[in-house]
Computed example of a mutant assay.
Amino acid sequence: MRFFFTTVLIALLLVSCKNDKALEKKDVSPEKEKHSLVGVWKMVGYYNYQDNKVSDSFMSNERYQQIKIYSPSKVMWSRLNRIDSTDWFGYGDYKITDSTLVESLVYGSNTMKPAIETNNVFSFELILNGDTFSQISIDENGDRVLAENYIRIE
């Protein structure tokens, strides 16, 4: 009889632990998941702007690729440009709001080093829609200049 009660007690503990995990997962709202950069992103193209309107657009291809990886607080990106042998990458912290992305780079490739030494904070307008996002460079007058457009790949 003691064996029976011990077995039932262990089974109840296992079932209750499993239910707690299921509840934890449900606590993350779909809206919160949508407004997150956490993951791996591939640049699919970019827009140039003139007078705050898209003036032309370019798609990424096998010769020019860029990947960004966001953890909950860190960003790392790398760019492949098969046309030349220049290395491009950067690493640092980031913060987002509903409409802004600010990356504070700690270090980067030799090509990025002069930009990081001059100003290591890069601010963008952010448009985030689930599995796509655009980071838009804004000039000193508040006008859009260039947008990098990404899709989530993981």
Results as ranks from 00 to 15, higher is better:
residue 104 S to Q: 09
residue 71 S to N: 06
residue 151 I to W: 00
residue 85 S to L: 08
residue 89 F to N: 09
residue 71 S to P: 04
residue 36 S to T: 04
residue 106 V to C: 02
residue 16 S to E: 09
residue 140 E to T: 12
residue 130 G to R: 02
residue 61 N to F: 05
residue 136 I to A: 05
residue 131 D to R: 06
residue 13 L to S: 15
residue 94 Y to W: 02
residue 59 M to I: 05
residue 67 I to T: 15
residue 43 M to V: 04
residue 57 S to N: 07
residue 153 I to S: 04
residue 31 E to R: 06
residue 53 K to M: 11
residue 69 I to M: 10
residue 105 L to Q: 01
residue 91 Y to A: 08
residue 133 F to D: 03
residue 101 L to N: 12
residue 139 D to E: 03
residue 154 E to I: 04
residue 11 A to E: 02
residue 18 K to E: 11
residue 44 V to T: 15
residue 5 F to I: 14
residue 125 E to I: 06
residue 20 D to T: 14
residue 95 K to C: 05
residue 135 Q to E: 14
residue 122 F to V: 04
residue 98 D to N: 14
residue 122 F to E: 10
residue 51 D to Q: 11
residue 89 F to D: 02
residue 23 L to W: 07
residue 40 V to D: 07
residue 73 S to Q: 01
residue 45 G to K: 03
residue 80 L to T: 12
residue 66 Q to E: 15
residue 113 K to V: 04
residue 52 N to S: 11
residue 97 T to L: 10
residue 95 K to V: 11
residue 36 S to G: 01
residue 75 V to M: 10
residue 139 D to Y: 04
residue 99 S to R: 08
residue 54 V to P: 02
residue 33 E to A: 15
residue 122 F to R: 12
residue 20 D to Y: 12
residue 82 R to S: 14
residue 66 Q to Y: 06
residue 134 S to M: 10
residue 33 E to K: 15
residue 51 D to A: 14
residue 124 F to A: 13
residue 78 S to N: 09
residue 135 Q to W: 01
residue 94 Y to I: 01
residue 145 V to E: 07
residue 137 S to Y: 09
residue 151 I to G: 03
residue 103 E to K: 06
residue 37 L to A: 02
residue 15 V to L: 12
residue 27 D to R: 15
residue 123 S to W: 03
residue 7 T to F: 00
residue 53 K to G: 06
residue 136 I to C: 01
residue 35 H to W: 05
residue 7 T to H: 00
residue 126 L to P: 00
residue 137 S to P: 01
residue 77 W to H: 07
residue 78 S to Q: 11
residue 72 P to S: 12
residue 2 R to D: 11
residue 122 F to S: 08
residue 77 W to V: 00
residue 148 E to G: 09
residue 84 D to W: 01
residue 109 S to T: 04
residue 41 W to E: 00
residue 114 P to V: 11
residue 74 K to M: 13
residue 56 D to T: 15
residue 81 N to W: 05
